[in-house]
Simulated scan of single mutants.
Amino acid sequence: MGDVVSSHLDEAKREIISARTEKVMGEFGRLYEQQFAVALFNKVRFDIEGGGGPQSQLLHRKIPLENKSIFSGSLFQNIEENKKWKNRYFFVPDSYNINYYDNKSSFEKR
């Protein structure tokens, strides 16, 4: 038990590991940045509406969504100034950007 000898990494090995780690984290960061807003949006929606089990934080898609919406529908937004809730229309396209409009007709007019 324990015949393993560890040695310090030399500078070349450290640079190789750093480069690989930076590449993997860069790819993951890009995906995380795209999908964080949608994952947060889904969590808030499930917290408010209830139902459904735990959801994975990253969206897994075999076929990428192209020219499709991930989510569209009405949600209530709390307006701080007058302490009232307003019904807003939300639209999340395949780019994972969250867009909201005053109502559905505003969205249709763009």
Rank of each mutant, 00 (worst) to 15 (best):
E11P: 01
K13S: 10
R14L: 15
E15N: 13
E15T: 11
E15D: 14
I17E: 10
S18R: 13
R20Q: 14
T21M: 08
K23N: 13
K23G: 05
E27C: 07
E27L: 15
F28Q: 09
L31A: 10
Y32P: 00
Y32C: 10
Q35G: 01
Q35F: 01
F36V: 14
A37I: 01
A37D: 09
V38A: 03
A39C: 14
A39M: 02
A39K: 00
A39R: 00
A39Q: 00
L40K: 06
F41H: 06
N42D: 10
K43T: 06
V44C: 06
D47A: 08
E49C: 09
G50N: 03
G52M: 02
G52N: 04
G52R: 01
G52P: 05
P54R: 14
P54A: 14
Q55W: 01
S56R: 14
L59S: 12
R61L: 15
R61Y: 04
R61T: 11
P64D: 08
K68V: 09
S69G: 03
I70P: 02
I70R: 00
I70K: 00
F71C: 05
S72N: 12
F76C: 03
F76N: 10
N78S: 05
I79F: 10
E80P: 08
N82Q: 10
N82R: 14
K84Q: 15
K84L: 10
W85F: 11
